[in-house]
Design a protein around this nucleic acid. Structure first.
Lengths: 204, 204
DNA sequence: TACATATGTTTGCGACGCTTACATTGGCAA
DNA sequence: TTGCCAATGTAAGCGTCGCAAACATATGTA
């Protein structure tokens, strides 16, 4: 009854039931705990309680498995960002700040996955689905910025300033994960967001 | 005479002569051409014309080889940035712009290495040498920003705005490499640098 | 009940990272 | 010059991994 069936559960029957999902979860877990370079599909198989050949009934190859993990990650991230934007009224500074913060929070909460989301898609702009998802996510930022500045969604100005903001939070997220700011070099994140927000989104 | 001894040269004698340097160069070349996930030390050995066991007379393990490649990359990058800063008078906008551009240019010229420089150092802030090098590089930016704003090097303000600029060029570099801006989403880099420079370095 | 299909296992191959034992060489001391 | 040592190479082998092929088992439907 009270047997613990944690995130990673044992297989009971010959047929696993949900190997595909379980494998993606196992890989995500390993990426987070051991790092993206220190795990193997074989290890994920052991976690899922399945032979090392089993994954290839569900996925073409290793890359397709990682792509699946990244896809789910992008979905979740977009969700969080949309929630952050929806939680505040259009045009408020708080809305922009919350959006940026949600991005940074995601990176901090799931550094391994975050890193993989971007390193994997490198040189794979041919992947329609992932590309579209990235575009949609950027779209959230453009929308919030356009609202804030009260300019059209399609304006070059909105696109430019939204991208600048994205560059900023993206860069900060990676530098933070890479621990480039340690000791006395540390910087206050609140102050940082403030200064950037003011600089990038000037009230006319 | 006119025999081509390119970057990758054949071994003539039993003793290679400069296997250490040659291996680092071979790995750098492979990282750039095949991607950081698609090469092996064994392949680098073939390029250097040496058995797959030879590297381990010079390096403890694979990671130490990659670390060597990254170290040289960081050296070169810092050099380029210092050159860019030195090429313009202190306090000029051109100086700040050139510094940022040198960073982006490096990323664009050597995307594989650039990416590896940051992904490898993740979770290795214990590496004194690499950490110090990163700090020194950030120091260049802080110096240029402090000059520009005519404020003390040690001021919180200089540190904060320098880091913000770093976040920006860093983020843009990665998003660019990951090809996150394609087609009509494309943004003019010059405009971008301008808008960010103005926003982050306000003349009082 | 029988059979097609989905999904698992076993076995095996080639590549890789790395170790160990051995071979070759260049440089230095006698 | 000779002789030896340390540096630096090779060959062979171990364990793991990604992946494929052949085979086994469960599920759903005629």
């Amino acid at each position: 009854m009270a047997e613990g069936k944690g995130l990673i559960q044992e297989k009971k029957n010959y047929h696993h039931g949900n190997l595909k999902g379980q494998l993606l979860e196992a890989v995500r877990h390993l990426v987070e705990t051991k790092g993206a370079d220190e795990f193997s599909i074989a290890e994920a198989c052991r976690l899922a309680g399945v032979s090392t050949a089993a994954p290839y009934k569900h996925f073409k190859d290793r890359h397709e498995i990682l792509r699946g993990v990244v896809f789910l990650g992008m979905l979740r991230m977009r969700e969080r960002m949309q929630e952050a934007a929806d939680a505040h009224a259009a045009g408020t500074v708080a809305r922009v700040a919350a959006l940026g913060q949600s991005y940074i929070d995601f990176a901090r909460a799931e550094p391994g996955l975050f890193r993989m989301m971007f390193s994997l898609t490198a040189g794979h702009q041919d992947d329609e689905e992932l590309s579209r998802m990235g575009d949609e996510t950027l779209g959230i930022v453009v929308g919030v910025v356009a609202d804030h500045l009260a300019i059209p969604l399609e304006s070059e100005e909105a696109k430019l300033r939204a991208y600048a903001l994205w560059c900023f939070v993206h860069g900060h997220s990676f530098l933070m994960l890479d621990d480039k700011l340690h000791g006395e070099k540390m910087v206050d994140e609140g102050q940082l967001l403030l200064i950037v927000g003011e600089g990038m989104l000037p009230r006319v």
